[in-house]
């Protein structure tokens, strides 16, 4: 990967929680990078610290050692450059869909006319125009996540961080959301770093999979998904029909099981 194409890098990020006497090592020397316009997936078994790593990238937590840099500059604390979509529903219930999407731009002093235009564009992009003036309380889980995605994208971050964004949704809604995310990537060319433990989701969405091992979280391998190169994936069915898909899923499942087996006493 050419260096100028890199947007985000983590350099030997380590994280230890707790006191000196009862310390829990969550991450050890994790280094990887995300290229511009890439959809990078952080995958690994539970306890591999992938969510912690994402929080560090977001600036919500500080690494114990190591650093994260965006566009070559070391990050300190959260900023609008690294917008985050959470697994829990984070639409503000007292704001309508439109006001939710407009929210981030309002914080950053975007003028009203531009705010309205951008909000409307991204509400359209996530197919929620019909619900523009609805309160989140009246929306389904999938729709709430779409609001969160539109809100973050409308704020024009350098990179979109997603922490198991579809984890709380039922299977059918999850497919729709995954397909919609690929649609969005195609039109907006957003760089995305997404955490998941769902192997199929990872293969379907990823340009690149960063696989972490558990206890403590370390970089195990980076998968480039050669079999997907050049294929146009519109739906889950396209993916499953692709030669090499099953082999890839089998490989990652084996990786996952090997890691999970290491910490069997945890279950």
């Amino acid at each position: 990967m050419p260096l100028d194409d890199t947007i985000l890098t983590t350099n030997n990020v380590s994280k230890t929680f707790g006191s000196k006497t009862k310390a829990v090592e969550a991450l050890r020397d994790v280094s990887f990078s995300v290229a511009r316009n890439e959809l990078c997936i952080l995958l690994g078994p539970s306890g591999c610290g992938k969510s912690t790593l994402l929080n560090i990238v977001a600036g919500l937590e500080d690494p114990t050692s190591g650093s994260v840099s965006l566009d070559g500059e070391i990050i300190h604390g959260p900023s609008r450059q690294r917008g985050m979509v959470f697994q829990s529903y984070t639409s503000f219930p007292w704001l309508t869909v439109f006001e939710n999407v407009e929210y981030g731009m309002k914080l950053n002093g975007v003028p009203k006319a531009e705010r309205t235009e951008r909000a409307e564009k991204f509400i359209e992009l996530v197919h929620l125009s019909r619900f523009r003036d609805a309160y989140p309380n009246t929306l389904s889980g999938g729709m709430k996540q779409r609001v969160a995605i539109a809100r973050t994208l409308a704020n024009e971050p350098e990179i979109l961080l997603m922490d198991e964004p579809f984890g709380a949704l039922d299977a059918e809604t999850r497919w729709h959301m995954q397909e919609m995310l690929l649609e969005i990537v195609e039109t907006t060319h957003t760089t995305i770093l997404l955490v998941t433990h769902d192997i199929q989701e990872a293969i379907f969405l990823a340009d690149k999979i960063v696989f972490l091992s558990a206890n403590p979280g370390r970089l195990k391998t980076v998968l480039d998904l050669e079999f997907k190169k050049g294929a146009e994936l519109k739906s889950k069915e396209d993916l499953i029909a692709l030669p090499g898909y099953l082999e890839c899923e089998r490989e990652i499942t084996a990786l996952m099981r090997a890691e999970a087996g290491k910490s069997e006493e945890d279950y």
């Binding site: 959470f86 914080l107 950053n108």
Partner: peptide
């Protein structure tokens, strides 16, 4: 919910904005 506050912060909200708007 902490995630509401974290959402605001990652959208660029400063402390006063988070207090006032979340």
């Amino acid at each position: 919910p902490a995630d509401l506050i974290r959402t605001s912060v990652t959208l660029g909200g400063n402390r006063l904005q988070v207090l006032r708007t979340v």
